[in-house]
Design a protein around this nucleic acid. Structure first.
Lengths: 205, 205
DNA sequence: TATTTTTCATAACGATCGTTCCGAATATCT
DNA sequence: AGATATTCGGAACGATCGTTATGAAAAATA
């Protein structure tokens, strides 16, 4: 088949036989549910509907695929976080909404339970140390994002200047990570919401 | 060699060539650090100083060894919990001490970081579903233990009757699970202590 | 139509997984 | 001493791991 339109001109060789974004989405779901090591190449290729050679050609390998799946998770199912932090809300309200949203998102019936980042890859074999460190780094950055939001609250005057924003940020992230474990263990949405409400009682004065 | 004393009479065959408790201890350490699946039989037998056939003879297999390692963890490194819950303390003080003790224990230099139970085996391959369920069940029982302690507080009158003990217990366990993730990510003892202090601010009135 | 380029499916690779088998070693019992 | 019982080290098992090699398939280009 020939393509005349120069704006959609096909490259030289055989065209890819699958949708890259769709395949990445399937991989993300499996990694999300299983973690990195427990998701085998056989399962990945089956879920993505492609062959190992296509996977290597398009994504570079299992570890690289996992990192791209992480990116896709943050930009997709995990995208609910950023707008809440960025919204023009009182600081306390923002984190209350964040915990409510987490309770909702971590227990959706149409998704794997828990967060793909929050409590994943805490244990692994030495050969997976690289990906473990990558996930841990994302968790650290998430705490930083909380800190930044809290500092914005201090600057805006709706959070007392004496508050230890580092400790508060880490506490809030600790709760999120615990919520992810709870969700994976089968806790209900209402139970997670109750945990979130309890956690908010720790909000300074 | 012959053994005369009938109270320490040896059984018929060749005597075991290793200390069962010591070997189990080594296995526990490795499982604690790596989790179930990422700890290979090669590493286990090397750490325990025994052969695969001895491991099977003495423990039954990898999965059974893991369960026994869990028991040993609870009775050993994790034994600090029970006396704090059982102590004759005001309820609030008990959980404050528990969080302080956790911050200390989860960051010991002579042990793997984090708790062997709290945030482990949240993701695994289908073949390890059995052990995952077993660990999850222990986490559920831990929440129950917290609930029982809180109810004791209500009965003793140092916790208001209107308090939702289920939610409070789950919140406290959620924090513990999050602390375990934090510890594995390298958070310092002081940081965990600060998280614990923040969490205690959620204590009812 | 022939050539070139890229992707694809399949099979095969070496490594490692948990497990089992086997013969030697080491003890007690007859 | 010989028979019996139990444990040992080590090899071997089939299965599965992630990865790579091979050649056919499918497109544009010459």
């Amino acid at each position: 088949m020939k393509n005349i339109d120069p704006t959609t001109r096909r490259p030289r060789g055989r065209p890819p036989g699958f949708d890259r974004e769709l395949a990445l989405d399937k991989a993300m779901r499996l990694f999300w549910d299983r973690g990195y090591e427990a998701a085998s190449m056989d399962e990945l290729t089956a879920a993505m509907g492609i062959s190992p050679s296509s996977l290597y050609g398009a994504f570079g390998g299992k570890a690289q695929l996992y990192e791209q799946a992480l990116d896709r998770y943050v930009a997709g199912p995990g995208a609910y976080v950023e707008p809440i932090l960025a919204a023009d809300l009182p600081t306390r309200d923002a984190f209350q909404r964040l915990l409510e949203a987490a309770a909702f998102e971590l227990t959706r019936a149409d998704q794997p339970r828990g967060c793909m980042v929050a409590a994943a890859e805490t244990q692994c074999s030495p050969s997976a140390e690289g990906v473990r460190a990558a996930v841990a780094e994302r968790r650290l950055q998430a705490i930083r994002a909380y800190e930044d939001r809290l500092r914005r609250g201090v600057a805006a005057g709706d959070l007392a200047g004496g508050v230890d924003v580092g400790a508060l940020a880490r506490f809030l992230m600790t709760v999120q990570q615990g919520l992810s474990v709870q969700a994976r263990d089968g806790a209900s949405r209402e139970e997670l919401l109750a945990v979130g409400r309890t956690a908010m009682r720790a909000w300074p004065s």
